[in-house]
Design a protein around this nucleic acid. Structure first.
Lengths: 349, 349
DNA sequence: ACAGTAGATGTAATCGATTACAAGAATTCG
DNA sequence: CGAATTCTTGTAATCGATTACATCTACTGT
């Protein structure tokens, strides 16, 4: 009856007051003993620390944020689809941020205005000290226009057109795509198809441009019947649909550049089901080098994006920009190198 | 020079005071107009709302949390490895939590004590209203023992031994494994190997027990040379290593039950490289039904765990338990059904 | 020995909301 | 019509930390 200790949420958490009382000092001293250890006597620090140990005190986050105007949290906005691609990024982000004592709030925008507005509000409520938008899908919401001045924002994978207010960490999608298609051409391919990504994405446009560049450089005319657009997302289903396009063609390509690994994998799978073998009958190149690319059969030749490193660098940059109040580090644009990873899915002809 | 508006972080955010002043009411009324709209006149509500619109006011989260003793945030703890398995779970969690206005803080424990301690501190700092531990890896940290009384905690995928204080959402791993192995036996297999998961995990033990059950039920003696333990994690590499065990064997099994899809895929891939074909030469069954299972070649026969649904249910339960202060809903244990998904990787002999 | 300075600590204001309590206005009812 | 009740609103305390400012003590150098 008297045992309150078991499931009593009413056991009132211990506050700085309790610690101060026990240590026989003021709350100011407790606060200082924690934040600026050099500013208190060895003896008092000891007393405070021991009081803290005894009471099991943990400073209240809300109170601290309210006064210090910093929450030590960042918001990571993800599109919410094609997630396994983003997994290493999120992993890297969490690692760096939590190491520095920052919490990572994740938000999936799912390309829904409602959710974007929701997260804009989170930012405006001062709930985070910084924002990382993963993928070019920067919320177009009006709510967002005021936001960049409140906290630093960084973009990973694709910069937004008119924004020098953001740090950007991306790769040269156009050049990378051109390299891939150039590799196919060097292997003797002339009839090369391209499965594009989702219509409205920057990556899609850039990679398509790179595809065109490489063809042009080799003096190959662009054949619109080999550009398989509007495939949907960077996912298996897009590859499936593209396979239908392939089978419907009389004059089939000898190589296909898919705008993403998952598209490539879906495509290859559907081809197999239809009795077409990769790379025997047709070569396929992907983009991203997700963890499945190397384990697939055939192992996928693809462009590696350094996702983990992008995450790490972006996190470190954001950390820097968050720490310096006022005279802040200016936003940067870091373009990371891609790497052509040659495996089994493209063959010489 | 006078344009402070551009990159001025000093543009002091608008507070409830500003709104109150503009609307000609007290801050209490503004607060009520927002939280309990029925408790103010239509007219004042209008005035307040219009003042809010005009100023672009968003309530400060820290201040609100401090006073209301609720942060509307939950912590989701993930192991931090084998992430694509957890992706749908995290997705489901984010969906239902953000729909209810809760933020999702992710933490990867990476089986490191330091990180567990870190997140225990986050909880104790009152930074979250609830916790979801994904996977049985409940932090063994002493810091954690005090925590469950502070906020409700739920477990997904595996319950912790002595904890009736947590809600648990899992599947009957043992029965599911037995079903899979039973399926192999029904297909005529007698020599069946098992690639286990990581040594210390509950799932590993349960699935192994199910494997034993099925063998026993069929009167097949357990052959220790067919139990491939200590494979590491639920990942490709474990499958690779298991393939070496397979090749090293004289009397090879005709079927292999892998404790996870990724293990199965890694295993199959290594087998292929060694010239062994699945399911022609050996049948393979997986566990989980991750998104790659169906797209692989051969499409993997596996036990489907309803990951999305588990996430959703767990989130809803936690939401319920968080909302009711004091007379709280008791923790539940929900055991969800698995489903044997028959594809191509197991063949009749 | 004494003014001046540096160092340690305490007092109290503050951050921006929510909410208990009080007071005034409007409504209901006998 | 007056008392009782309900509705609306305002005043001010409060949540738990941080920190500017004040105070007091203990040195330093001349």
């Amino acid at each position: 009856m008297t045992t309150t200790e078991d499931h009593a949420p009413s056991a009132r958490a211990v506050t700085i007051q309790d610690v101060a009382r026990l240590a026989g000092v003021s709350t100011a001293t407790v606060s200082r003993a924690l934040a600026l250890p050099d500013r208190v006597t060895e003896a008092t620090r000891e007393a405070v620390l021991s009081a803290i140990r005894e009471t099991g005190y943990t400073p209240n986050a809300a109170a601290r944020s309210l006064r210090a105007k910093s929450t030590r949290m960042v918001l990571v906005l993800l599109p919410g689809i094609g997630n396994s691609f983003f997994t290493p990024v999120l992993n890297a982000l969490e690692e760096v941020f939590s190491d520095q004592g920052y919490g990572v709030l994740v938000g999936y925008t799912r390309q829904s205005r409602r959710r974007e507005t929701h997260y804009a509000r989170v930012i405006r409520a001062g709930q985070v000290d910084g924002v990382l938008v993963v993928t070019g899908n920067v919320p177009r919401d009006e709510e967002f226009v005021a936001v960049p001045d409140q906290v630093p924002i960084s973009l990973i994978f694709a910069g937004i057109p008119g924004g020098a207010r953001f740090s950007v960490f991306d790769v040269d999608n156009r050049a990378a795509a051109a390299t891939m298609v150039g590799h196919m051409i060097a292997a003797g391919h002339r009839r090369i198809a391209h499965i594009t990504g989702p219509d409205n994405s920057i990556e899609t446009n850039e990679r398509f441009a790179g595809y065109c560049d490489a063809l042009a450089a080799a003096g190959i005319a662009l054949d619109e019947s080999l550009v398989w657009r509007g495939a949907g997302n960077f996912d298996f289903a897009s590859g499936d649909r593209a396979a239908a396009r392939y089978f419907a063609l009389e004059d089939r390509p000898t190589a296909v550049f898919a705008a993403a690994d998952e598209i490539a994998l879906g495509f290859i799978r559907s081809l197999k089901t239809g009795g077409v073998s990769v790379p025997r009958d047709v070569s396929v190149g992907g983009f991203d080098d997700t963890e499945y690319a190397i384990h697939y059969d055939p192992a996928l030749t693809t462009m590696r994006q350094p996702r983990t490193e992008m995450g790490r660098l972006a996190a470190e940059d954001l950390l820097r920009r968050m720490s310096e109040k006022g005279a802040s580090t200016p936003p940067t644009h870091v373009r990371l190198p891609c790497e052509l990873v040659i495996r089994e899915s493209i063959r010489q002809i």
